[in-house]
């Protein structure tokens, strides 16, 4: 690893690059999505797995309550394990696929990604709150950037296209308030 590269892989975790041409990466992603639609009959999905894990956790703590709850209840019906679901497997695949690619590109480094001028703790709090909002919103909209925006968008489903537009509207509206986390 040369010096320049080392400098770039500083505590902020900014990689030196070596990424694919984004349009080619997009082609591979689109082909994967198409394969998912034609083989599984369902598109890509990522937010279902954390939600299923949430149901599994809640059931471990309060089984009665969870199995009678309106949203998670059907996932636990008949003593079923909420994790026995194809999108949980897809999520595991996504993690492993990312790991494989990151190893090949030597991009693995345990770090908290942030601007140099921003504290690690504050960055992690923002990540946690952001994660909560995303988890909640994904259930409300029945999907995330993968399930709604990519998959529904590719099928030209009106509701998914509306979701996609609103993600950017919400993102741009809030961007100014959290800009400091990336200030160096």
């Amino acid at each position: 690893m040369n010096d320049e590269r080392k400098r770039d892989l500083s505590e902020t975790g900014v990689s030196a690059g070596g990424y694919w041409n984004p349009y080619l990466a997009g082609l591979l992603l689109g082909a994967t999505l198409l394969a998912s639609l034609l083989v599984l009959g369902a598109g890509l999905g990522a937010s279902a797995a954390p939600a299923r894990f949430g149901a599994w956790l809640e059931r471990a703590v309060a089984p009665e309550h969870t199995c009678n709850s309106a949203y998670f209840g059907p996932w636990c019906a008949d003593g079923q394990n909420p994790l026995t679901y194809y999108l949980v497997l897809m999520f595991a695949g996504t993690f492993l696929g990312g790991l494989f690619s990151a190893i090949l590109a030597r991009r693995i480094r345990v770090t908290t990604e942030r601007g140099r001028a921003f504290g690690t703790g504050a960055r992690l709090w923002l990540a946690l709150i952001g994660g909560c909002l995303v988890g909640y919103a994904s259930r409300l909209a029945n999907g995330c950037t993968s399930g709604q925006a990519l998959t529904g968008g590719a099928m030209l489903l009106s509701g998914s296209l509306a979701f996609m537009v609103c993600v950017f509207v919400g993102g741009y509206a809030a961007a100014w308030f959290v800009r400091r986390q990336w200030h160096d």
Binding site: A46, E113, L126, A127, L128, I129, G130, G131, C132, L133, V134, G135, Y136, A137, S138, L140, A141, N142, C144, T145, S146, Q148, A162, F163, M164, V165, C166, V167, F168, V169, G170, G171, Y172, A173, A174, A175, V178, Q181
Partner: peptide, 15 residues
């Protein structure tokens, strides 16, 4: 859902 998701996305930096 999209609006809330967008806010969470920019705060957390991830989807």
């Amino acid at each position: 859902g999209g609006l809330i998701f967008g806010v969470g996305f920019v705060m957390g930096g991830w989807c």
